[in-house]
Simulated assay, not measured.
Amino acid sequence: MTRLERSTRLDPAADRLQRGVHAVLRPRRVRDLLHGVWLGHPLHPALVQVPVGAWTCTAILDLLPGQRRAATTLLAVGTASALPAALSGANDWASLAREQRRVGLVHAMANSVGMAFFAGSLAARLTGRYNLGRTLSFLGLAAAGGGAYLGGHLAYKQAAAVNHGVPELRRMEDGWHPLADLDALPERTLLARRVDEVAVLVYRDGDDVTVMLDRCAHQTGPLSEGELAEVGGRACVVCPWHGSAFRLDNGQVVRGPAANDQQLLESRVAGGILQTRLP
């Protein structure tokens, strides 16, 4: 797996495919839909449960007598549901870092081989060649299983599509921490401060003050170096690295590629001093 992450030979193909995905999924609304911005959670991991579950159940039913019709039905459901899962996965993949895209490319290739086997299995079953269909299903499950392992490596080893900001919370001590004199804070300005070596973003709008983690949930971009924008009538901060946008009043993600909300900290004013603590 380490050699795969470092394999520069995959980069030319990955770069071309990335440009192709961006060209096909150009409308931002489409990309945000597939990222899961509306869900507040990456969409791809949720969608893959249907095909993987259906294909696994197909294999189990293939080992039982008298279950041909049920197995074929589940196989059809799994194969059809794999298409939106693959589309959302391609959209997520195109926003990953280079070493993540290398593993993701092989992940997609393994799953594509699996889908081809499953489609062939479905065709064989529908034409009465059940034994061939069963064999192709087992081959498809093996390929999809390899793809699932690579997907797990992407998530758990390479931290693809996870909230990169939340681990910062583990570095903060409990209790209230002073940040700044409230009267000295300029309004409608993105400010960077630190709490126990944790970078936070401070934003004041009149009497309302927001304190959120400065590192973007998507790829740890410094939000305090981003831009202010109004999205849907709400003040938002736009990440300078990949363009994810978060509402400044509640941290809600309104534009991807981030699919997770940005973590807010609790805040209060005591003796004219703005203080913050863990939520």
Rank of each mutant, 00 (worst) to 15 (best):
M1P: 12
A235E: 14
L10Q: 08
P12Y: 04
G165M: 03
G272S: 13
V77M: 13
W176T: 09
L43R: 08
R9G: 14
A13L: 15
D207S: 14
L150A: 12
A46E: 05
G206H: 06
L64H: 07
E227S: 13
A90G: 15
E5T: 15
W241S: 11
D208V: 07
R19E: 13
E187K: 06
R9Q: 14
G206Q: 06
C57G: 13
D249L: 03
G133C: 09
R134I: 03
R101E: 10
A94R: 08
L34I: 05
S81P: 09
R171M: 10
V30D: 01
G133N: 07
A80T: 15
A46C: 00
Q219L: 14
A142D: 04
A13R: 11
Q67K: 15
L274C: 13
L154V: 04
M212P: 00
A161Y: 01
V103H: 06
C236H: 03
D214V: 00
R194Y: 14
E230Y: 00
G272H: 12
T79R: 03
R29M: 05
A13C: 08
G251F: 04
R204V: 04
A258L: 09
H41R: 08
D214C: 00
P12C: 10
A229M: 02
R6W: 04
A97I: 06
G66H: 05
A144R: 00
E266C: 13
Q67F: 00
V21L: 09
P279W: 04
G175R: 06
V21P: 05
Q49G: 03
R255L: 03
H242Q: 13
E197G: 10
R31I: 00
T73G: 13
V198H: 02
V162P: 01
A217P: 12
A199Q: 12
D205L: 11
P279H: 10
A217I: 04
L132W: 07
R31K: 11
S95Y: 09
H242C: 12
A97D: 15
L154H: 01
G66N: 06
R188A: 14
G243D: 10
W55M: 12
H153W: 02
A76Q: 05
R277Q: 15
G151E: 01
V211F: 03
R188K: 14
L87I: 15
A71Y: 02
G104F: 04
P257Q: 08
L191C: 08
A184P: 06
F138A: 11
G233V: 09
T58Y: 01
A71D: 05
M212E: 02
Q158T: 00
S244R: 07
S121T: 11
V103S: 04
D62V: 08
F246S: 07
V50R: 02
T276S: 15
R26Y: 05
Q158V: 01
G271I: 12
D261W: 03
A258M: 11
A23C: 07
G114I: 07
V209C: 04
E5M: 14
S121V: 09
C236E: 01
G20M: 13
C216I: 05
P27C: 11
H153P: 00
F117R: 05
P240F: 04
A90D: 02
L47Y: 02
P51R: 02
A108G: 15
G206C: 07
T56C: 10
